[in-house]
Simulated assay, not measured.
Amino acid sequence: MKPRNPTPPAFGAGHASTYAAGTPRKVPGFDGLHAMTSQLLAEGVKEDGKILVLGAGGGLELKALAENHPGWTFDGVDPSADMLAAAKDTIGPHAARIRLHHGYIADAPDGPFDGAVCLLTFHFIPREHRLETLRQIRRRLAPGAPFVLAHISFAQTEPERSQSIARHIAFGGGDPQNQAARSAIATNLTILAPEEEEAMLKAAGFTDITLFYAGLSFRGWVCYA
């Protein structure tokens, strides 16, 4: 039976309409993250490579990768129809090289893909679905193919946890002392410590796991199938 993850409740039309403008302001080094992702994938992906993008709603990483690599083709997967509609608007002239799929990783084509990306998505996936999701990604990759993963991850011990939450809120333009915002992070996101993230990648069968990006509350890794 294919695993199904619950759809995050906050990805309706309202979120989709503000995603392209709002997200780059909330993620430190957003454009640099896309540039590094493109570079790291290109180290192991041929000029006509096939890329899997999990959490493709909004389309920002699809657009960036398609612009940098005109020979690549993409399959993007997202559980939010509204976010996929936003992605269609964002990818514009690159649409002929991009197939969008409504659903979860189990709804993605089997591949094999030459590389995979999951940016700013995994903190919405419950802990109990993380490892199987990673295994499903790896199963769709060609041997040795690169996988780039980046999302919110910070220490879950105190005082580091509270400090990271406060910095996350402040960078996004909010009041770091706002208790409602703090509670929203705890309620809506599943945040793991970086060492637990790396352990899950290893358990899923990925190798050569390397941290390449750290921006306040965000971390990014590159690893290989």
Rank of each mutant, 00 (worst) to 15 (best):
104 Y>V: 02
60 L>C: 02
108 A>G: 05
74 F>A: 05
182 R>L: 06
56 A>E: 03
85 A>F: 01
3 P>V: 10
23 T>V: 14
102 H>P: 00
187 T>I: 03
176 P>T: 00
176 P>C: 04
182 R>I: 08
60 L>S: 11
194 P>H: 14
157 T>S: 14
170 A>S: 13
69 H>Q: 12
189 L>T: 13
121 T>L: 09
93 P>W: 00
160 E>T: 07
213 Y>A: 09
200 M>T: 05
215 G>M: 11
116 A>H: 09
190 T>I: 00
133 T>K: 03
136 Q>K: 02
112 P>M: 08
102 H>R: 08
178 N>L: 01
3 P>Q: 06
161 R>M: 11
58 G>F: 04
33 L>R: 10
114 D>W: 10
163 Q>I: 14
126 P>Y: 07
119 L>M: 10
45 V>T: 10
183 S>H: 11
75 D>W: 08
72 W>A: 02
112 P>L: 13
214 A>H: 15
92 G>N: 12
5 N>R: 13
86 A>V: 00
124 F>S: 01
193 A>F: 10
18 T>W: 04
108 A>C: 05
120 L>F: 15
15 H>K: 02
127 R>D: 12
68 N>I: 00
103 G>I: 09
169 I>Y: 07
51 I>H: 04
130 R>E: 08
143 P>M: 04
84 L>Q: 04
31 D>S: 05
206 F>S: 08
180 A>C: 01
44 G>P: 03
216 L>S: 11
26 K>I: 00
213 Y>N: 09
206 F>M: 12
49 G>M: 09
122 F>L: 15
39 Q>I: 03
202 K>Q: 14
19 Y>S: 02
26 K>R: 15
147 F>G: 09
174 G>C: 03
64 A>C: 05
81 A>I: 00
45 V>E: 10
137 I>K: 13
44 G>D: 07
125 I>F: 07
189 L>W: 14
